[in-house]
Simulated assay, not measured.
Amino acid sequence: MTNLVLPESLAAARTRLAEALKAAGRPADATRLLAVSKTKPATLIREAWHLGQREFGENYVQEALDKQADLADLELIVWHFIGPLQSNKTRDVAEHFAWVHSVDREKIARRLNDQRPEALGPLNICLQVNISDEPSKSGVSLEALPALAEAVQALPRLRLRGLMAIPAAAEGLDAQRAPFARLRESLEELRTRFPEAALDTLSMGMTADLEAAVLEGATLVRLGTAIFGERNARE
């Protein structure tokens, strides 16, 4: 996967998503493709942009800021922060991203709110859920999710959009679908609790489990390897 030709791999990813949506009986525009560009150079992101890709996901703050500076001339590019977020990095994320998928505690949410420039408008937030209860993974528990959602919903410079999860690896479509189904059901419960919130986003599904995520209602799928090849070693 290291020598992918980007026009071909991006087209294949789009075709795969389109086929998954058709198989799920969902509209062709029901799920957006988020190109995960962590460890990849700005030149590849620029090439993907020229091929029509507009949304990009980054995990590492300083690496992302360097790319954003290199690509500042590109219009309509949308930056999503999808990695674990430390308190000392919240200001950079609040000032330079449109979306954050990895909010899992109130302290981080409050810092993002307080540091979000008012001129940029609200920062779109997905709450990361530890859907498989893995001790090694970030994410709020399902039990603690309603309280965190209530806290974020009350912050004026944040816009609560939905949920994100990275389930444990599983073999077979049914096993892959189960945690995504739990995440979807959790979002439906939050919509009932907070009818005024713009809860329209399920950020779930990656290269290995895209089809399962689409079947369970993903609105954003995060593809890195399928588009850009294996991740590069970080310097």
Rank of each mutant, 00 (worst) to 15 (best):
T15Q: 14
T15E: 13
L17S: 05
A20Y: 01
A20V: 02
K22N: 10
S37C: 03
K40G: 04
A42C: 09
L44V: 09
I45F: 07
R46F: 04
Q53C: 06
R54W: 13
G57E: 11
G57N: 11
E58G: 09
V61W: 10
A64V: 14
Q68I: 15
A69M: 03
D73L: 09
D73C: 08
L74D: 12
L74E: 10
E75K: 15
L76R: 07
S87H: 01
N88G: 10
N88Y: 12
K89D: 14
E95P: 00
H96W: 08
W99L: 04
H101P: 04
V103T: 03
E106Y: 03
I108R: 09
A109S: 07
A109D: 02
N113A: 04
A119Y: 06
P122E: 12
N124D: 15
C126Q: 09
D133T: 13
D133S: 14
P135S: 14
S136H: 00
S136F: 00
G139P: 00
V140Q: 05
V140E: 05
P146R: 09
A147F: 00
E150N: 12
A151N: 03
P156N: 12
L158R: 02
L163P: 00
M164Q: 08
I166P: 00
A168S: 13
A170F: 07
A170P: 00
E171H: 05
E171Q: 10
G172T: 07
D174G: 02
A181K: 00
E185N: 14
E188P: 00
E189L: 11
L190Y: 04
R191Q: 12
M206T: 12
E211Y: 03
A212C: 12
A212S: 13
A213R: 08
E216V: 03
G217D: 02
V221S: 08
G224S: 09
I227Q: 05
F228I: 11
F228K: 05
A233N: 10
E235Q: 14
E235F: 13
